[in-house]
Nucleic acid binder design. Sequence first.
DNA 1: CTCTGTTGTGCAAACGTTTACATTTATTTC
DNA 2: GAAATAAATGTAAACGTTTGCACAACAGAG
Lengths: 346, 346
Amino acid sequence: MKGRKGVSIVDVAREAKVSAATVSRVVNNIDKVKPEVRQKVLDAIRDLGYSPNHAARALVKKRSNCIGIVVNNLHDPFFHDLIKGFEMSAQQTSYAVMFCSVLGGDVASKEQYVRYLTNGVVDAVILYGSYLSDKSVINYLKDTQDIDYVMIENDAEELNCNKLLIDNFGGAKKAVEYLLQKGHRKIAHICGNPNKKVSRERLDGYLEAMKNAGIEVDERYVQCTSTDYRSGYACANALFDLKQPPTAIFCSDDAIASFAVRAALDRGLRVPEDISVMGFDNQTILPDHYRGPDITSVNQPLYKIGMDSVKLLSERLNSDEEMELVRKIYQTEIVEKETVTECKVE
Amino acid sequence: MKGRKGVSIVDVAREAKVSAATVSRVVNNIDKVKPEVRQKVLDAIRDLGYSPNHAARALVKKRSNCIGIVVNNLHDPFFHDLIKGFEMSAQQTSYAVMFCSVLGGDVASKEQYVRYLTNGVVDAVILYGSYLSDKSVINYLKDTQDIDYVMIENDAEELNCNKLLIDNFGGAKKAVEYLLQKGHRKIAHICGNPNKKVSRERLDGYLEAMKNAGIEVDERYVQCTSTDYRSGYACANALFDLKQPPTAIFCSDDAIASFAVRAALDRGLRVPEDISVMGFDNQTILPDHYRGPDITSVNQPLYKIGMDSVKLLSERLNSDEEMELVRKIYQTEIVEKETVTECKVE
DNA sequence: CTCTGTTGTGCAAACGTTTACATTTATTTC
DNA sequence: GAAATAAATGTAAACGTTTGCACAACAGAG
């Protein structure tokens, strides 16, 4: 086990024949120090190749000037826009931003990361959409008043923290209204992983829109995938097998939609001529080299949310007075692409 | 400016009526402590909700048990596999892994991140392919013997550190040989950003393969993009405009290739029937909703490189004796897809 | 019952900073 | 030129850990 060695502030002080305090002052540009002394110190710093140790600094200042971000599968292209947002606003603040990723739903290491970060390594953390099952993470955060954090896309009641949310219910409702407006009446829904709140919200949006239109929903029109979006393929087939198959399918997300489209194409249905398909998330990047038409979808402003979250934290950290917690719901918008068309049958 | 408060080891010690040293011992499972005492301490820890402060710990131990990764545009889908590799092996070590991203070629903040990380926040850092122009980063690292690091895809001579490299020269050569074997003779090259070493290596591979085949390369057959891969579109058009247009184009990377294909399609050429196009990187994700055929490419084992780099560091950090620096060159392989076919003209 | 050894604990120094306060030095002001 | 004030620097404590060392308690051996 190797450790680090290095030149410390007192080495610089000795070299420049001043006290450590003075060196600290020039390093931090705080308090006046005489130009000639400052120069001596600067020279010593250069000669010795000194850089301040952040652990020590964080220890005494109780701040690290760093914001941590924890997400579930950083490699997932879903995060493309979100990351871009983080990067962008990181560049604009004085805070360093660091990403931690936990593979799959590995709750244990997620909690570990959060504990790690919240104890002296960052000043604030941003969490993306912790699964509902991440009770341990939530419980931990619940009791942690020490640190500022924002949750994106997770509205756990136990948590009173900043929350940036997406209007999944409204987005789904809008999507279905869009299909209705295209003349569709027989609209089915493929629901995502039912353990995720987001899936239920989108389902509810679907149901609401249908109810408002006065259409009774055959329960067979609602199919649920397992935890794997690939099962969207089977769900779609189940819908096509009905004697009264739908003319349009609203899917809980684009990944599922891509499999629904594939299922349609595989059994010789044309998309959108024979069946309209709509997704959610507006992902530009789809699983497995998807080659079908671009999927009409609902866009969520992830770039903006990414930007806003670090901006928000940076403002809070720099404010003297206690600030109110933010709870903001972002609206979505329909993105018309190639998988939806007017309903031709009546 | 708010700071953190929190319960410290001495609070626990007081509560459990033992010394701080003893608390430390139970927290770290080091040295024997009597079972009943341990239990008292554990209770106190639970009651007070204590977690150790990592800044203090890092300060005295001179280790943080964390590895930092710095890349240029984390959101770039190019990193998909690499990130996956990092995540995977992070899960298998006891090290926390944190990603830092700098937008574009922002050298200043890149150096800032590296300085930050190397001074008491991580035990080792992984850098991906610093541009050659990142002299300041390289100069900084050159003088930094304190910390272990690995460079991926950067062979700067000044640096003696662990290097994981890709055989760009060999990969390009292989690609061109593949085209030759398909009967192509008039093979052009669109070279990437000429400031990047990787572009030059791939160019050299192209030239070498052509030379070996005894084909003299018309200099107009080598087009260079600007720093923006979008200019691949113009380069391709320049090639098509020649009286003797090529039958195949080898592009420095897939992003460029996607624009070359687009240029071809836009002027009514069929790909690959009229013109074969080959890329490099095997990116599954292409810019701007690319809708052409899948691009035949050269794959580099980024997933493995990601895995190997954190494994390597973790081994080095845990080894007592001085280990030799690693310098490893990874081989590439041709991935046959849809943009190359036999040369039909003679 | 002393001696030696083991085992479990506590004391205090150290890690590299920052910063309130004390002290020195320089600059006014009268 | 002394007194008063301002400016620059130094002193030392503090931040929350870990760990070498000393010490106490207690065992087993003689």
